[in-house]
Design a binder for these strands. Structure first.
Lengths: 212, 212
DNA sequence: TTGACTAGTGACACAGTGTCACATATAATA
DNA sequence: TATTATATGTGACACTGTGTCACTAGTCAA
């Protein structure tokens, strides 16, 4: 978490630094990003950087959590809009995330974030100040899910289902970013997988496969 | 890929270097590992290291691919043993992977590998010499899957199902490693998710939820 | 014995990090 | 206004780690 000094800065200066950092982190992955580039672009001395942040990671995870929070908010908003339908919500969110929004830099940042996702997963899962926030957001999401369309017998199962769906969603996002799939390719494939999740992949008794 | 020079080395010296590298990579994640530690433990001069490998990553991914290949072979062997039942196979493999095998170092290496999984995903997905090998292994796996127990109508769906199952498996592996779950916790949760995958999470018409 | 090739070696230039002593600004108090 | 305290700004510097290169040392064939 950035130090208080950073938050005492005029908003404009904060913005300049954030902008420089985003630019650097969208240029290359975390482990290749250099503080030198950030301070050069933000035009602040090296010493100042360390007045504001512990290190490169501190700044990076601050930005990452901001974006994650935005997406969580968006998730919750979509979920409300779609009356709790998790599939419709995630399809929209998936589509939203792989779209460009006319900002190549933001997309690069997010792509690099996925590439770094496990770079220091302890850091993300760590019991830091974000943790409580994350937990309550998770509970909110779960509570908003409309279970009338889901074949779910208890809350435990709902957690499992959420986990499954998120795993598949993430994998598809990563693939879309890393393999540079077109939006259509990505969405079609994602959609088909979601249908399989709904239907189930185990053989039903009296049904025969065309293919086997 | 290590340079030819490395492969010309006597097996024993190769082993010493590999051992030193595994030790370092199990101590810390890739981005924190240092060549200095590896050459110190292997007792070779710095210049020699660069005769054998391009850099730290070169050595690291070589080891990682070795382990991945071993696991792929194990996957295929299990699949044959279980008459192509993908669920039984993966449950066994899952259990196998989170077990210790009396080698704390190997487990640390694998854990760090998961933490670094996306560190440089391009590297892993890159069209390198492993690619062809991987592709053919994938095809072999798919061909071994017994579809009589799966509700699958064409090959496209089989690919999707494989992808889904692997996504969920990986997520559970990562979680087990990072959150230090006991084997029982991990396997129980994984198992329950697999059952949901088989059954499907979408609501069947005439069935009612206890919970909603 | 010479030449050609392959491998071994460690000093070194270079790049990047985090720190620290000092400089400067701001605000509160006498 | 002068004084003091506190917060912030600054860049030179020590330190760590990387990759290179000129040189050395083997090996083998002519």
């Amino acid at each position: 978490m950035p130090k208080q000094t950073f938050f005492h800065l005029p908003k404009e200066k904060q913005g300049t630094i954030i902008q420089a950092a985003k630019s650097e982190f969208s240029r290359v992955a975390l482990h290749e990003a250099s503080i030198a580039n950030i301070i050069k672009e933000a035009d602040i001395p090296r010493g100042s950087f360390y007045q504001y942040f512990d290190d490169k990671e501190d700044l990076y995870y601050y930005l990452l959590h901001q974006i994650a929070d935005e997406n969580n908010d968006r998730f919750i908003a979509f979920l409300q809009e779609k009356n709790g339908d998790i599939f419709e919500t995630l399809l929209d969110l998936f589509q939203y995330m792989i779209q460009n929004h006319g900002n190549e830099e933001h997309k690069s940042f997010v792509k690099n974030a996925f590439l770094n996702m496990n770079y220091k997963m302890e850091n993300i899962l760590a019991n830091d100040i974000y943790q409580e926030n994350k937990r309550s957001q998770y509970i909110k999401m779960i509570s908003l899910i409309n279970t009338t369309n889901l074949n779910v017998k208890d809350e435990q199962e709902l957690h499992h289902i959420f986990k499954i769906i998120m795993a598949v969603t993430f994998q598809n996002l990563i693939q879309a970013f890393v393999m540079d799939l077109t939006e259509e390719e990505a969405v079609t494939s994602y959609n088909e997988q979601m249908e399989l999740l709904k239907r189930g992949v185990g053989k039903k008794e009296n049904s025969a496969n065309e293919f086997s």
